[in-house]
Amino acid sequence: MAERRMISKSLLMDNRFLGLSNDTKTLYIYLLSFADDDGIVKRSMMIDSVLRVDDHNYTALEENGLIIPDKNDQIKVITDWNNLQSIRKDIYRQTTYLEVRSQLFMRTDYSYTKNPDDKNVFSSADDWIKNGRPKDITDFNPLIQQHLNDRNGIRNGDRNEVRNLSIDQYSTDQRSIDQDSTAQRRTDQLSSDQDSKAQQTTNIKYINRSSNGGMGEILLPANGSTSTKYNNATTESGVNSGEDNGVNQDAENNFKMDPERTQEIASLFDSLNQAFDVNLSVDDERLRMLFNNLLNQYKIGYIENGLIELSESAGSQNKGNVKSLVVNHLSETVKSLLTN
């Protein structure tokens, strides 16, 4: 995600924006700043807490047409993203929320809508992005007609008639298409590598050791002398370290998740890195298994609150200490927050 976003005068003078309360205006600017390159952003408990905003503020943005909600109420789409931001092809990175983007359509003013029957819709968002995100189209009529034909084909059940939009109509270059193909191949390879790593973890055992609550870990081969995947040795407080970490053997051996769960885990890594000001990789299998197990028990917002609580109580930590802190204490922190 880019470190900088543009705020245009047209936005600041838009009556929909001017009519908002000051805290809702600030929230919208924050959403713009944290959105990915397709204008999709996940609601952050940290931002809500800092700005002291709630559902009412998000509803105001939705009612004014500035954001589009998703069925997952934590995900928001910036309606006018493509008018407010110009992102070069060579630095553009597509969203990780592909399922959300697949439900969006492009209007002739380049804004998003979820209504495919809007008379101004000329393409699906996926097709428009695949074809280079052009914003210099001079004649929308052929594209609108093509979209209507495709829609009629879907309604009639004749999916064989549904065709992709013509690249010639967009006057885009082949390089952007090749980049998308390359990015997809890299994504597929990464997924394959991650599956291999997950399989390899079945040959590793972890033992936590520390006199201050388990802030370190040792890796042992699977044929070591310990009797279980996670050693039954306790910390000085006498608590079983494997269960404290919120990670079980089933989660490790069967670590295959659906796309929605993968997105939730990626979001938790974002929250973790923001809370502790680090950049731990989403490829970290130990943390991924921890988050996956916790998501089976708690809503994602509770886990994010637990990360914030840990960061506030721990203060500044290096990457290694942050990982150990989260692995050893996040589960108990979430539990304690729910009982308060």
Rank of each mutant, 00 (worst) to 15 (best):
S196C: 06
A198W: 04
I29A: 03
K42Y: 11
E3K: 13
A183D: 15
T59K: 14
D178H: 09
L190E: 14
K135N: 08
S316F: 04
V278N: 07
Q200N: 15
G224W: 09
I40K: 07
I40R: 00
G132F: 02
L268H: 09
E304Y: 00
R261Y: 05
K205D: 07
I204D: 12
T202M: 10
L104N: 00
Y112N: 02
K323P: 01
S124R: 05
M106L: 04
V334T: 08
T187W: 12
K119G: 03
S271T: 14
R261E: 14
Y206L: 15
T235K: 05
D270H: 10
I308H: 01
L310A: 10
T182E: 09
D173K: 11
E260M: 06
Q249D: 10
M1K: 09
R261C: 07
P116Y: 02
N296D: 15
S331Q: 09
L219F: 11
D139T: 03
G39P: 02
R43K: 10
L143I: 09
F17D: 10
E309W: 05
D80A: 12
S171G: 13
A314G: 09
D23P: 02
R186L: 11
N305G: 05
T339G: 03
M215S: 00
Y28H: 08
L294E: 01
I308L: 06
R286Y: 12
Q169P: 01
N15H: 04
S241V: 03
K335L: 10
N253H: 11
R209D: 10
D80C: 07
L98F: 05
K130M: 10
K299S: 08
D188T: 06
I137P: 03
Y92F: 13
V50A: 11
F105I: 05
M289A: 11
D180C: 08
R107Q: 12
L20T: 08
Q317V: 04
K25V: 01
F34L: 15
L32I: 10
D193I: 08
F122T: 00
K119E: 11
S192E: 14
M106F: 05
D244L: 13
E62F: 01
N232E: 14
N160F: 09
P116C: 09
R88P: 06
S331F: 06
L268A: 01
D70E: 08
L268S: 02
I7N: 05
N141Q: 14
I177H: 03
G320T: 08
K76C: 08
S86M: 06
K205H: 04
S210G: 15
N152V: 02
I75Q: 01
S10F: 05
Y302N: 15
N305S: 12
Y230K: 11
K335A: 13
P142M: 03
D55Q: 12
Q317E: 15
S192G: 13
K9F: 09
P221C: 11
L61A: 06
K42R: 13
R286A: 10
L337E: 04
G214V: 00
H147V: 06
Q184N: 13
D195W: 09
I204V: 11
S86L: 04
L12N: 02
S225H: 02
I154M: 11
L338Q: 12
Q85I: 00
S124I: 04
S10P: 00
I40C: 01
R52V: 07
N328Q: 12
A251S: 06
M257Q: 13
V100F: 01
D90Y: 07
T262W: 04
S225M: 07
N141E: 15
P259C: 04
M289H: 03
A125F: 05
